[in-house]
Design a binder for these strands. Structure first.
Ligand code: MN
Ligand code: MN
Ligand code: ZN
Ligand code: ZN
Lengths: 147, 147
DNA sequence: TTGTAAATGAGAATCATTCGCAAAAAACAA
DNA sequence: TTGTTTTTTGCGAATGATTCTCATTTACAA
């Protein structure tokens, strides 16, 4: 019988995956981070707790955590993905091309539109990618770094 | 004075770009194609009309055509972009993970949501990325290639 | 404990996209 | 036309992100 029992442990066991330090650490870092981390930053942060972890393992790990539904990957205008622990309330992102700031927002109308489409066309939606880019209020005003 | 005058010519001149065979050809291929082409396919199709065109030029060209608003680039679940001549009626895409089919649809509710957000948060939206992936009706039924 | 399958680290490989630079083509003026 | 100037192009090398290979280590069930 198992003395440990966290969402991670549970999910890993349920999916027949092994519980490794690397997997714990990657998820922890993501849960404690208030920002959206890309693989590289995730790698450096994870290193502090699992000094020998490799970048390849970070990629392998985010893949399984994602597939288990514990983390989400977003495409935020950059050429690489960003990760975040799956939040209580789902949301979408706007990324400022000027300062890089990310504004999170929810959009039930979008969720509804997706569901309607799925029903009407008989589709099984597996992933919704919705993100915006542009200039934030501050940058529009000639903000911190001008535009 | 110029005898030629197409949207492309006009746009190129307006933006101070030169009119080259490569630019004509890339746009033509895109306009005549009913599918969303990625850089590589675009390259091979363009080669038939401009045999010495290079892949680098295809990339450079889609960049300017995009910036001129003549074509659009989409992220359809794959790791590379897809291009399409900007359509009369804007639309979004659903890509089937089983058969690759792309279903196009419009979603005024989404457009509205974006506009509301922009106003409320005072954002200047430059690009909206909205695309879905999953399984199409045919594939769900155990379609053409099973799932 | 031990045996076995799964996971990891390190580096090579792959893919998409971008760069650098010399040669070719467009725009312009004469 | 012709020559001059400036942009584009082609080609191959470079880059950045992600995946793969494979020998070694680890998890964990028996
Ligand atoms: Mn977020
Ligand atoms: Mn389309
Ligand atoms: Zn900003
Ligand atoms: Zn399908």
């Amino acid at each position: 019988m198992n003395l440990e029992s966290s969402p991670l442990i549970t999910a890993l066991q349920a999916s027949g995956h092994r519980i490794t330090r690397q997997r714990r650490v990657v998820l922890e870092v993501l849960e404690e981070s208030r920002e959206h981390l890309d693989a590289e930053s995730l790698y450096w942060k994870a290193r502090q707790r699992a000094p020998r972890i490799s970048l390849a393992t970070v990629y392998r790990t985010v893949a399984v955590l994602k597939q288990m539904g514990l983390i989400a990957e977003y495409s935020l205008g950059e050429e690489h993905g960003h990760f975040e622990a799956v939040p209580e309330t789902p949301h979408y992102h706007f990324t400022c091309l000027g300062c890089g700031r990310v504004v999170e927002f929810d959009a039930p109308q979008v969720d509804r539109a997706v569901q309607e489409l799925a029903e009407r066309e008989n589709l099984e939606i597996r992933a919704v990618q919705f993100s915006l880019t542009g200039y934030c209020a501050r940058c529009r005003a000639g903000g911190p770094d001008g535009r």
